Amino acid sequence: MEVKAVFLDRDGTIIEDVNYLSRLEDVKLIKGTNEAIELLKNNGYKVIVVSNQSGVGRGYFTESFVRKTHEYINTLLNNKIDAFYFCPHKPEDNCSCRKPKTGMIDEAVKHFNIDKENSFVIGDKESDVELGINAGITPILVLSGYGRQYKDSTKAELIFENLYEAAKWICQKDSTA
């Protein structure tokens, strides 16, 4: 059976973007993130984080630090994140996993048997919106993080103040479907 999912960007969407996060003590959830993820989980969504982490490729931090960061974030969120996928490559590496390419989503779709038609990609950058478009999944731009600078030029039809507002809309839409 296919399941529905919400793919979330990490920095600027669920945690504050501190530009190449390299210390656990700098991890701060954006207000409403815990409630948003709880709402999505209670409404039957898999919650999957997809994140570009080029700091690994640039030598700023290690893949094991990224994994440790994800474990820490999931602890803050009461272990409600179903999976974390990240791209450790630099933009010039031209890999298939760096957003807006769909490698991370393709892997998750196979692993979790995801129904793309009833799923969403949420992020604060146009690369997140383009990821959704490229993967055939409805994209949502949130205005947290860098979102405001894309607001007037985004290809996203759905724009919300933050993850919590997006989650409320998704779950209300579900209840009327």
Rank of each mutant, 00 (worst) to 15 (best):
E2Y: 12
V6H: 02
V6D: 02
D9Y: 08
G12D: 00
T13A: 08
I15L: 09
I15W: 12
E16I: 08
V18Y: 07
Y20K: 06
Y20Q: 06
L21C: 10
L21A: 14
S22G: 13
S22T: 13
L24Y: 02
D26V: 04
V27Q: 07
K28R: 15
L29A: 12
I30E: 07
G32R: 09
G32Q: 02
E35W: 05
E35H: 10
A36H: 04
A36Q: 06
A36W: 07
I37F: 07
E38G: 15
E38L: 12
E38R: 13
L39P: 11
N42T: 11
N42E: 07
K46C: 09
V47H: 12
V47A: 04
I48Q: 00
I48K: 01
V50P: 02
V50Y: 00
S51K: 10
S51C: 08
Q53L: 04
Q53T: 02
R58Q: 10
G59N: 11
F61Q: 02
F61M: 12
E63V: 09
K68Q: 14
H70F: 05
Y72E: 14
Y72T: 09
I73S: 13
N74T: 08
T75V: 14
N78I: 15
K80C: 10
D82M: 06
A83K: 10
F84K: 09
Y85L: 08
H89G: 05
K90M: 13
K90H: 02
P91M: 04
P91G: 05
E92S: 12
D93R: 15
D93F: 01
N94G: 11
C95A: 06
C95H: 06
C97M: 01
R98T: 10
R98I: 10
R98L: 09
P100K: 02
P100F: 02
T102L: 06
T102D: 01
G103P: 05
G103E: 06
G103I: 11
G103N: 09
M104N: 03
D106N: 14
E107C: 11
A108N: 06
V109H: 01
K110M: 10
F112P: 08
F112I: 04
I114R: 12
I114P: 11
D115M: 10
D115C: 11
E117Q: 05
G123R: 07
G123L: 01
G123V: 06
D124L: 12
D124P: 11
D124A: 15
K125C: 00
K125G: 03
D128L: 00
V129G: 05
E130K: 15
E130D: 10
G132A: 05
I133Y: 00
P139R: 02
I140A: 01
Y150W: 03
K151T: 00
D152H: 05
S153E: 01
S153Y: 00
S153I: 04
K155F: 00
K155E: 01
L158K: 09
L158H: 09
I159T: 01
E161H: 14
Y164T: 05
E165Q: 15
K168R: 15
K168G: 13
C171K: 05
K173A: 14
K173Y: 15
A177E: 13
